[in-house]
Design a protein around this nucleic acid. Structure first.
Lengths: 148, 148
DNA sequence: CCGTATCCATTCCGATACTG
DNA sequence: CAGTATCGGAATGGATACGG
């Protein structure tokens, strides 16, 4: 999205993901979308960013297929921004960001808000990277293969 | 890090994480750190960014405890940037970004590079959000509790 | 090799005013 | 309500030159 040294064609999926969503406001908009927000005004009030900036970010997210414009659910003449499947599949990224933040970005006294399973009311499990065998992996256990 | 409408004190862990690492270069540096890079010149050559920008990003990452300066492993007079435990715990975030990118950011013909388990050579499992019971959860199955 | 110091162009962001 | 238009200041990014 942002004009930078071009790595959009890198064969690293991390670089490509970041090219699509790797800026602060985009991720925050997506976070709010996962919280159920769909209207321009909702995002604007929640995030407190300038409307012109919000406009460009929403346009970009729609343009790359993460959000889509749909008729307003309340029957009004307006439209709403809804997560597509591609957008909903960002869920693990948001959860991973959330869990790291819970662990490292809060002082002992502070309490973060919490993501819970609606059914049980329990917090979700900590995300873990696993081998096909189920064995837990940390970064040292893995490596990147050029492109098979 | 970046000067923006201040949400660093939000009680949302996602916002706080993004405040620390929510920009393109920082995540790319961290990606390279997971690939084993430790030297200023390595990052600079890999990412192709201006040295002054790299300097500020590295300083920030050291400042927030994700990287730390350690004596050079080759015995030279220089120092290297190593991931701390706090930094290594970003691993699931990088894996989540990678897996989303693999799925959505490559055209049918293109092949991304691949993260594999060193031991088996097999790709790592797809990250999944699960309840304490082990049940798979998507975003609709979850909600955010204000701060219990 | 590992930065620091400048300079300049571009972009980002916030604020405000305006429109259908 | 949901944007668009414009403006100015700040930060970012690239390039280059310089120093320990």
């Amino acid at each position: 999205m942002v004009k930078r040294t071009s790595l959009e064609n890198a064969d690293c999926p991390v670089a490509r993901s970041l090219d699509a969503i790797g800026d602060w406001w985009s991720l925050m908009i997506i976070r709010d979308a996962f919280l159920g927000m769909r209207r321009f005004g909702e995002f604007q009030k929640s995030l407190g960013l300038a409307k012109n900036i919000l406009t460009t970010r929403l346009r970009t997210l729609v343009g790359c297929g993460i959000l889509e414009l749909v008729p307003a659910s309340d029957g009004s003449a307006y439209r709403e921004y809804a997560l597509t499947q591609k957008g909903r599949d960002l869920f693990p990224i948001l959860v991973a960001l959330r869990q790291w933040g819970e662990t490292y970005a809060f002082a002992p006294g502070e309490v973060p808000n919490f993501l819970v399973d609606r059914k049980s009311g329990q917090p979700v499990q900590k995300l873990e990277v696993r081998a096909t065998s189920g064995r837990r992996l940390n970064s040292f256990d893995t490596e990147v293969r050029p492109r098979q």
